[in-house]
Simulated scan of single mutants.
Amino acid sequence: MKVAIIGFGSVGKGIASIIRDKGLGITVTAIADSKSAAIDNSGLDIQSVFIAKENSGLCGKIGLTPDDVISEADFDVLIEVTPTDAETGEPALGYIRKALSSGKHVITSNKGPVALKYPELKELADENGVELKFEATVCGAIPIILSLQNGLAGNDIKRIYGVFNGTCNYILTRMADEKLTYSQALLEARELGYAEADPTYDVMGIDAAIKLVILANTVLGYKKSLEDVEIAGINMITSESLQLAGEDDLTIRLIGEIDCEKELLRVMPRVLPKNHTLVVHGTLNAVTAETDLAGEVTLIGRGAGSVETASAIIADLLFIRKLNGRCA
């Protein structure tokens, strides 16, 4: 199987290193970053690309673009891992459309295109007989989409709720455990790389809301947008409120919820018992699906990180290879 990778930040590098180190029988024929691209249809020397990126900041030749990769490279699957734009989905949306229209499978970790245009992209994939996979868009390494679509097939899902954002969970954990202020915990999260320089999407609940939209539209068949989600973040939570909750053996977590009976989506801080299943610590995510047959099923794991996100991408890649024996 031949793949092309668009996006060579931490996630793209993680994917390339896994392919290089694990001997998966996958050939990388193209890699593109924001300023350059490398193409070799017989297979790139991944280590050489890493060295070039480290030395020059470029993965390949200046002037070659992701569009050139899609048009010129020989590949079966496009792995699209560029930064998310939740308002337009671009430029990733254009890359995904072009690849699907060219009869290429697509795997993405990019929440924007899936949240904004999933019905269109799914139709485009179906028309061209290819797969569109996006497990990495929700909860990192946790196979939440696969579990809901396949593992719980035949169940009526009544509710999906949980901790969808590791940055917020880390901040709340540190505020409760160490009595840090919100500002102190946020600064610590930034220094450790858990929070972006601009953490707005995370702390205001927008990131969790986008993930709810993706689950609602792809798993439940809704037609929701970010505007349909009731959102409140954690920026107004104080260490004092967490300490008061703790005196009653309670704590606070940012919980995203889909109420399937009412088709309601909301993200907001909730007071939970400390021994509640969803009270996970650090950057962990935890999601519970409430079903008619299986009861409550909870998945817990790492929701972010380059290797964790790459894990979900690789799982989708191997799924496509198994499903499509025609990919050499």
Rank of each mutant, 00 (worst) to 15 (best):
P83Q: 04
D74R: 09
T137K: 00
N165Q: 14
G60N: 04
A99H: 07
D45Y: 11
V81H: 03
D156S: 12
I107K: 07
A125L: 02
I142L: 12
C59N: 06
N41V: 00
L58E: 09
L116E: 05
A125E: 02
I70W: 01
I96C: 11
F75Q: 08
L64F: 10
P143G: 05
N41P: 01
D74W: 10
G140E: 03
N150Q: 15
E120V: 13
E54A: 14
V130L: 10
G57T: 06
S71N: 13
S102Q: 13
L93E: 04
T88D: 11
E54H: 08
T84K: 04
N41S: 03
P91F: 08
V77L: 12
I79F: 01
V49E: 01
A115N: 01
K122P: 01
T84E: 14
V77C: 09
P83W: 04
N110K: 05
V81C: 12
H105W: 04
S109E: 03
Q47S: 08
G166A: 10
G43I: 02
P66R: 02
A52E: 15
E80L: 13
D40V: 01
K111G: 02
S71V: 09
G63Y: 09
L124V: 11
Y161P: 11
I107F: 06
G166T: 03
V163Y: 04
K111M: 03
L124I: 13
A52L: 12
T65L: 04
L64T: 11
V106Q: 08
I157M: 08
V130C: 09
K122C: 14
S109V: 01
D76T: 11
N150D: 15
F134M: 10
A52F: 00
V81T: 10
T167W: 10
K104I: 15
I107W: 05
T137H: 00
L124S: 11
E87H: 11
Y95C: 10
A153D: 13
K133S: 08
G151N: 09
E80W: 04
E54R: 14
Y161K: 13
V106D: 07
S42R: 07
L100R: 08
N150K: 15
Y118C: 06
D45L: 11
S48Y: 03
S101N: 12
L78W: 09
L93G: 04
K111A: 05
I160F: 10
E87I: 12
D67F: 07
K122D: 15
L148C: 12
L58C: 12
L116G: 03
V130A: 10
P113D: 10
G94Q: 10
A136E: 02
P91S: 09
L64C: 10
G57W: 05
L148F: 10
L93S: 08
T108Y: 01
T84Y: 01
E131H: 12
L124K: 05
D45C: 12
L121C: 05
A141V: 03
K111F: 02
I157L: 13
V77N: 06
S48E: 15
T137M: 02
V49A: 02
S48L: 11
V81L: 06
A52K: 15
G43K: 02
L58T: 02
E72Q: 15
V114Y: 00
Y161F: 14
A86W: 14
E87L: 13
A136M: 02
I145M: 08
I157K: 07
L146R: 13
A73N: 00
E120A: 15
E123K: 14
D45G: 08
P113K: 07
N128E: 05
E135Y: 00
L64A: 14
G162W: 02
D40R: 03
N155T: 07
